[in-house]
């Protein structure tokens, strides 16, 4: 047998990355800021998103959401209560979303009329970190009930994110949450990352979170 070495030098997730690049171009051309929300199960992605969608809609922004779920459509129904377009992506047991799934679910929305697209990823702190969905902002959420050391246990996902959101701040005292330790741990794995403290229940920090989104939209999509 003749044997030889063939140079490849290509990313294993190249196909996903190419689809994501195409998506990002399309969304940018339409002036849409796209946000990918990642966290462990139960951190409060849907709760924060419900509130965010409602507030943005009331401010006159046009928003939509995609939500990845292993098996149910509970989150999609909760989000649809905000009165905005919502689609569920059933991942059929897969532990993360991929760019193709996002692309497939955008086909009948008029992106030109949209200001913000939110994507709630599957609750999982490991797998979603490898898959670019064409988002502008990857937002990692950490609830006060999970412990301050999550960023050290899951450095990949924190490192790949652009913004960190602390959730359930209304429970911080009861959980003896040490916010300075949490901040230090986030900074250790992702120096300089912006951190916003929120409670979807009390509304604390929600305005700061909305300002953060508006600033990102301004800086990333200006002139588009």
């Amino acid at each position: 047998m003749k044997a030889r070495v063939l140079e490849i030098r290509k990313g294993v997730l190249n196909k996903n990355d190419e689809i994501a690049r195409g998506l990002r171009e399309r969304l940018h051309a339409a002036g849409v800021l796209t946000i990918n929300l990642v966290s462990s199960p139960g951190t409060g992605k849907t709760a924060l998103l419900q509130r965010t969608l409602r507030e943005l809609r009331e401010q006159g922004s046009s928003v939509a959401a995609l939500v990845g779920d292993l098996a149910t459509d509970n989150d999609a129904r909760r989000l649809a209560e905000a009165g905005v377009p919502v689609k569920q992506i059933n991942t059929d047991g897969r532990c993360h979303l991929e760019a193709q799934m996002v692309s497939d679910h955008l086909s009948d929305w008029d992106l030109d009329r949209l200001d913000y697209l939110f994507i709630e990823n599957v609750g999982n702190l490991v797998c979603p970190s490898s898959y670019d969905l064409g988002e502008d902002l990857r937002v990692v959420l950490l609830s006060v009930t999970e412990g301050e050391d999550k960023p050290l246990k899951y450095p990949n996902i924190f490192n790949s994110a652009d913004v960190a959101v602390l959730t359930k701040m209304d429970l911080a005292e009861a959980c003896e949450f040490d916010i300075e330790a949490a901040r230090a741990n986030i900074a250790a794995v992702r120096p300089g990352m912006r951190i916003v403290s929120t409670s979807a229940k009390s509304g604390v920090g929600v305005q700061e979170w909305l300002s953060c989104l508006a600033e990102e939209k301004q800086s990333r999509l200006v002139g588009v």
Partner: peptide
């Protein structure tokens, strides 16, 4: 502190050995 990553995100096929 530095977050200016120059290496570490790779998940890449460098080469394959094939039989012709």
């Amino acid at each position: 502190p530095s977050g200016d990553i120059r290496q570490g995100r790779e998940l890449e096929i460098e080469s394959i050995e094939i039989e012709m």
